[in-house]
């Protein structure tokens, strides 16, 4: 600080210095709160991940011990696999659905905005409440909604949430039901920016509906699609409330994603050293995903310019 002010003794005039002081002090409260609530705990969590911490008691420094143990645990690897499966399967369902909805809504005109509002109602709900709601929808009894559907086809009601094969797909459907429409909003915005003349020109050139979709819509929608994909990836990868409410990681760990493993290890087993190691791994994967998407997005906009 001193060196800087000595180097430019007369360069900074009083007015500029005062403006800088005002600006910094206006930013300070928000900055301090964000550092205290988001950054400090992250650093403290990393510190704890290097210690053996159990039931709020720090039993000493163990270096990378928690990480080594974590990566030796086959269940941790299974959880990473489950996270990736959940994330990318949900994406594979949600993105085409959101795109379809966006195209349909734009065609509908005035009624389209009504439909969009309707589709967004589940998104406004709490994930844990959505889980409670779907537990009732899925209740394995002929008096339940899904049970009655099984009944109508002459099948006995299945408990989809305790079936090792069907629990994950069921969870994915509920996750997509809750939030795919949010992606639709952004895609509608993206579609609106594609010049209509391009489609007219394509029609003149004799391009069919599918060709104009794949040659005009998809490439020009790429930036919006990437925003949607990255937002949904991060939201699905970190989803924990639906899993707590619907399956609790079961049956036989089939829905035990990394986010749920963190919740269970840290808050149920109270193995807080290891829980923080899982959090650090999740943080790195989050950062990696964001970096990949920024890279792709950067290339996209570079190519467009």
């Amino acid at each position: 600080m001193h060196a800087i002010s000595l180097a430019k003794p007369r360069g900074l005039d009083v007015v500029a210095q005062r403006a800088r002081l005002t600006g910094s002090s206006l930013v300070a409260p928000a900055l301090l709160l964000v550092i205290a609530i988001n950054i400090l705990p992250a650093l403290y969590g990393f510190y704890l991940s290097l210690h053996k911490v159990f039931f709020f008691g720090n039993e000493g420094f163990v270096g990378l011990g928690n990480y080594v143990e974590l990566f030796r645990d086959p269940f941790a690897w299974q959880a990473i696999g489950r996270s990736l499966l959940f994330t990318f399967a949900a994406l594979a369902v949600a993105v085409p659905l959101a795109l379809l909805a966006a195209i349909g809504i734009r065609r509908l005109g005035r009624w389209g905005s009504v439909l969009l509002t309707v589709l967004l109602v589940p998104w406004a709900m709490s994930p844990i409440v959505v889980a409670l709601l779907w537990k009732w929808i899925l209740v394995p009894s002929p008096g339940g909604l899904v049970g009655a559907a099984f009944n109508a086809f002459g099948l006995p009601p299945q408990d989809l949430l305790t079936d090792p094969l069907l629990a994950m797909p069921t969870l994915i459907i509920v996750a997509v039901w809750r939030n795919f429409a949010f992606a639709t909003i952004i895609l509608i915005g993206g579609l609106g920016q594609i010049p209509r003349d391009l489609y007219k020109a394509a029609a003149v050139d004799g391009l069919g509906a599918w060709e104009s979709f794949s040659k005009i819509t998809l490439p020009l929608l790429a930036p919006s699609l990437l925003i949607v994909i990255s937002m949904l990836t991060i939201s699905y990868f970190n989803e924990v409330q639906l899993i707590i409410g619907l399956t609790g990681g079961g049956p036989i760990r089939q829905t035990n994603t990394l986010a749920y493993l963190l919740y269970h290890t840290g808050f149920v087993e109270l193995d807080q050293g290891r829980g923080n190691a899982i959090a650090a791994v999740m943080f790195l994967i989050n950062m990696g995903l964001i970096a990949i998407y920024i890279r792709i997005l950067g290339k996209q906009s570079g190519a467009a310019a």
Binding site: N38, P41, G45, L48, I234, N238, L262, F267, N276, A279
Partner: peptide, 20 residues
């Protein structure tokens, strides 16, 4: 700081937050 904290979900820092 503001952009980075916006991108990373709060769930990952819940455990140390509870201890702090």
């Amino acid at each position: 700081v503001f952009m980075g904290t916006m991108a990373v979900p709060g769930f990952a820092v819940l455990l140390p937050t509870q201890m702090l």
